[in-house]
Structures are given as C-alpha cells and as structure tokens.
Design a protein around this nucleic acid. Structure first.
Lengths: 340, 340
DNA sequence: ATAAAATAAGTTACTGATAACACAGTATAA
DNA sequence: TTATACTGTGTTATCAGTAACTTATTTTAT
C-alpha cells in the first residue's frame, strides 16, 4: 500500500514519512545543506530514488522567486544562429534553457513573462535598437540580463563585434586588390550592426580618399527576406550605375541574392564584379564562386555572454557590467579579385 | 502609505483590501467567473490597474498544475523553420510559447522539464524516430502532445506530409523529361522523412521499370552539415558513375552542396545534370540556376498541429487522436530539363 | 406568503516547497 | 564543572494563488 495517494506525485512530506525524518530535513538534502548526518542524507536520497520523487518547480518558485532557468529572448527571430549554440552552455551550467521570440512591439510583454516565469537570467538577442537602454533596464524587472550586440549604456552588459573594424577589413581588402568604386547593399539601418557596417564602409572609403556609393539601403527586417533584399538592391544598383567593380553586401544571404541578380544580368563574379559578404554563413563557401566574407565567432560570443550572465547571477550585488568588443576575421575565397 | 510592503508586488489580498472585497472575489474576477456583480468587478479591475497588480505564475501553477504555456520541443534543432511560424499561433490562442532544443539522448529529460514547468501542451518537432511511440507517450507525463512529422502509433496525434507522393512528383517530373538514370543523394536514413523520401524514390523508379541508383547515403544529422553532405555525396557519385543525367537530393541545402561539387567538376546544371531538391527553402530560388524543388506548406502544418493540440487541451477526455497527411507540390524552376 | 432556487459574496483549507526559529544533544574551553 | 559554541532536527509560518464550502441576500415559483 502506497504511503501517498495514488495518481499524485510524492512530496517531500511523503519522502520524509517514508524515511522517518522531518520534511525540513528532506528539503535540506535537496538543497545540499551541509549540516545533515551522512547516514540521514543517504537514507533520504535512497527513499527519494525509490519513490521517484521530483521537486515541484511551482512550489520552489513560490518561495525562492527563482526557477533555475535562463531565457533566451530573440527579437525578430534571427535563427540563422544555431540554437544549440546558446542552449548548450546554459545546460552545462545546470540551468534549463528556454527560447522565446518577439517583435519590437512585444518585447515588453515578453520580458514581463520572463519575470512571471521567475527566470534567473535573460540573454537578449536584439539586433535592433528597439528601445532606449534605460527602458530596457526598467523592463527587465531586475533580472540579470546580458545583451548580445552593441548597446550604449554601460549599466548593461553587452558583447558586440567591432563592426567598424570588420568593415574596414572587407573594404580594405577590395581597395588593396585595386578597386576604387565600391558599391554597397544594405538593409534597414534600424539594425545596429547594419548601421555600423554602413558607417564603417563610408568611413573606410573616406580614409582612402574614395567616394562612397552607390549605396542601396533596403528595408529588410525578417531574415527570410534577406535574399530578396540583396536581389532587389543589385537590380536597383545596376539600373543606376554600372561603374562599380566591387560590391560590399551587408550579409551573406543578401550577397546570395545579389549574385543571382548579377547572373540574371549576364555579369560574372568575380570577373565583372567582386563581392564581399558578412557572417561567414555556411552557405558562403558553397556559393558559386565561394564567397569572400567576414567571419564572426558567434560561438565564442555566446559563451562569453553566458559567462558574464552567470557571474551576474552569482553576485548580483558586486557585479560590474562588462562591455566587450570582439574582433572579426576576413575569409578570402573566390568572389574577389583585382578589377579587369 | 501603501497597503502592502514596499518592494513587494501586490497580491490578490492587497487588491482585495483596497477594493473592500475578499481575496476570493478578486480571484473570481481574475478568472472571469460569471457570478460577480458588474460594479464589483469594475471596481476590482480598477484597483488592480491602479496598483499594477500582476498574477503570480508560481502560485497559480501550484494550485492549477498549469502554466498557460505551450512548449515547442525540437530534436536536433531544425531551425531552418521560422520560429515565428509556431510561436505565433500559440500566442494568438492566449498561451505563452517557449522553445527548447534537445538531442535524442536528452529528450526524456526535456520532457521531464516540460512536466515540471507544468506546460499545457507540447509540440514535438522530431524528425528522427528517436524512440518508440510507447515510450514517448509514457515520457510525456500525460501532457497533451502533438508530433510534427510522421509517427506510427495512433495513440499520438501527428501531422506529416505524404513523402512518397512528394518523391513521386519529383521523380515523375524527371522521368517525364526523359531521364532514365537518376541518382539520389540523401542523409542518414534514421530521419523519418529522409527514409520515406529514399523509399519513395526506389518505389517510383521501380514503377517505371527503371533501375534505381546510384545512391549516396550520407550521415548528416546537424542541419549545418547539410551542404557538406551534398557536396561529399556528389563527389562520391561522380567517382563511382557518370552515367546519370539527373539527380534527386534529399533537401535544398544538400542540393546546394551538390551543385557546388558539379561546378567544381566542370559540369553544368541543367545542361549536364538536372537536379530536384526538397523543401523549397528560400535559398532554392536564389541558386544559379534556380532550383526545381518540392514545396511543403509548413505554415499550414504548424497551424493544423496547434489546432489539434488546443482541441486536446480543451477536451482531454473526449479527444480522439488525429493522423493527418498533407500533400506537397512540385515547384519547377530552371535546374531541370530534358537530357541532352 | 412561503419555500425553493439562484446570486453574490465571504471563510477556511490546501497546494509543495523554503525560511526562520526553537530546541535538544554533543563537543570544546575556561 | 559550568559556560559556550556548534550540531542536527523538528515546528511553525509563509509564499500567492485556487477549490470547496458557507452564508446572506435576492429572486422566482407554488
């Protein structure tokens, strides 16, 4: 005869009764409280095992205000990033990882839900400057939060890549090859990295006394429109100006679209136009020709971000916010060469 | 002077005191219980608004055993599917949506966590036959679960595409064009759809009295290796046999890899080899040449899946499991033509 | 007019964990 | 020997809701 009602999961009291101790002692065993006699601990653990005991998360949340969970929030679902990239370090640290997506409009609600869920920390993937950092801090309900990508406010931890430098590498590569007129296709400048890449392009061109342009500023938001944006941009540029010999594209997927447009217009890469992309998306090396691009170590970025997040969770009082800037690398493939 | 301790969020008792009713009445208002006087309800709502009251999820979970959340579980993180595709219908239905990923090994643990989180339902994206359906049902702790992709057991709701028919469309298209020797590149046959596509290929070839092969069976598991698998497969096939005039590839990303391999070997698509892919991945129409492929309406699949899931959540007793088979469409682009 | 039924509340108990405190028993030091 | 600190364990309160039951007031039916 079972010591607890059928169809109900055992509670610490059931375990306690079975093990002949108080439920508080069971709780201490659960929480690795040191002052429990080894024999008592062993007996409790054994009873827990035998009864198939599992802690009730709701009850634990109610008292501790925590849920042993990290929430990864993505704005505009940038899922070309491998999801395992960020869930894996979380699980390794003993937390459970949940991913949610939202739009700029629903970010506030999403953060409220995270608070309701009593998550221990939030990793925010927001490539857009969706709201002032002040407001973001206010909305996070005091939950430790790390932001991937640039932010400005130093009361926020963020890890960004030096986009100016990344762009510099790309543009410099083209200039070194002998290109003088370099076009640029980009998306909506609302996106932080997009804007920084664009600014880096203009700056690097200026540093070499070259006139920037022609430039196509697209309107893409959803990642699945990337290729269309690149295609449309290329078509538009070819209508406006055929003088450029090289092209800088805001990311590899846009570059793929641009390459299709060039092929449709009977132009060859790199013979007629050299192209550089960004991100080193897996597709880059399988394009024909393989795309020269800029590589960002997103894995490392994720790891570092979680390291800061865990630091902040462990010492919420003494934690000092980090702003970490990472450096990208140029990957030269066959889509770039000296102009004819 | 506030009626509840500073730094603490107001509870239903705080609201009740302020509104001059019992906390139970506040609870009734929260849960849209009908027998509350309109004036009382209005007053309570107004006080809740004024105090910035928000329901404590932990406490609610503790009593109701539910969390107003749907968990989307993905096995081997198939994230070429747009995440918004499945979170959007969930949010529309008034649930909050969380996504988690796992491997075949950690699926059991992930389902345990879902139970701990007291989610109302689970949508399982498991392209692999990771475990017997029996075991899956046991592991889901009685939580309503819908499985995307084929399953066998009819005590499980699933929505799959007719892969045999899809493959039939693709192979038939090639045969109609005049191809007789059609190669096939595929991934690990552990994946349900991969196996079904492979079997469909063999079957359709047989129906037309054609010998199937050559076939390359790869080992891909992670989606990011898709292109490499296609590339390697193509190289391997070209070493073995150059007689084929057409190629069926298990998905568009593999097809992209195969196309690169063909280009590297100086072979042209579709002049030398016609190619058909699967999925109508956004990249398909931007490949050079644009890829003929098979389109699956994943959006509809997701919507239907959630419809069944909500049905099951609403009437857990009377619910009858559905097994729904959807039909795919062939999208003819420029990667296929009659053999030379 | 009176009983029965429906409405609109309030009271109390309960969910399953943790925290704070009390208390007895043992070890150490003065 | 007594005072003190340190152990391990039990008791009780608390978290913020919901469920079940109770009560007082209306409304309706006979």
């Amino acid at each position: 005869m079972p010591t607890h009602p059928q169809n109900r999961r055992p509670t610490i009291r059931d375990v306690a009764r079975e093990a002949g101790v108080s439920h508080q002692t069971v709780s201490r065993v659960l929480n690795d409280y040191p002052k429990v006699a080894p024999e008592t601990r062993a007996r409790v653990l054994q009873v827990m095992e035998a009864m198939g005991y599992e802690r009730n998360l709701a009850a634990q949340m109610l008292t501790t205000q925590r849920s042993r969970t990290i929430q990864i929030v993505t704005l505009d679902a940038e899922f070309h990033l491998d999801i395992t990239q960020f869930t894996q370090p979380v699980k390794q640290a003993g937390y459970s990882a949940v991913v949610t997506d939202c739009t700029a409009e629903s970010l506030a609600k999403t953060l409220d839900e995270a608070a309701a869920r009593m998550v221990d920390g939030i990793m925010l993937y927001a490539p857009r400057s969706c709201m002032p950092d002040d407001k973001l801090i206010a909305l996070s309900h005091g939950i430790p939060l790390v932001r991937r990508d640039y932010a400005i406010d130093s009361r926020l931890t963020w890890i960004g890549f030096d986009q100016q430098h990344a762009t510099h590498l790309a543009v410099r590569h083209l200039i070194d090859l002998g290109h003088r007129r370099i076009a640029h296709i980009t998306g909506s400048l609302e996106f932080i990295n997009t804007r920084l890449r664009h600014d880096g392009y203009v700056k690097t061109m200026g540093e070499h006394d070259l006139e920037s342009g022609p430039v196509y500023v697209g309107t893409y938001g959803a990642q699945r429109r990337d290729m269309k944006n690149g295609y449309d941009g290329m078509c538009e540029l070819l209508k406006r100006d055929r003088e450029f010999t090289a092209l800088l594209v805001v990311n590899d997927r846009n570059a793929m679209g641009a390459m299709r447009a060039l092929a449709d217009h009977g132009l060859r890469v790199p013979d007629d136009v050299s192209i550089v992309g960004f991100d080193d998306n897996p597709i880059a090396s399988y394009l024909v020709p393989p795309l020269t691009t800029v590589y960002f170590d997103f894995d490392f970025q994720a790891q570092l971000g979680f390291q800061y997040l865990f630091e902040q969770i462990r010492n919420p009082e003494t934690y000092k916010h980090h702003q970490h800037v990472l450096i990208a690398d140029l990957v030269v493939r066959q889509s770039t060469r000296a102009p004819a």
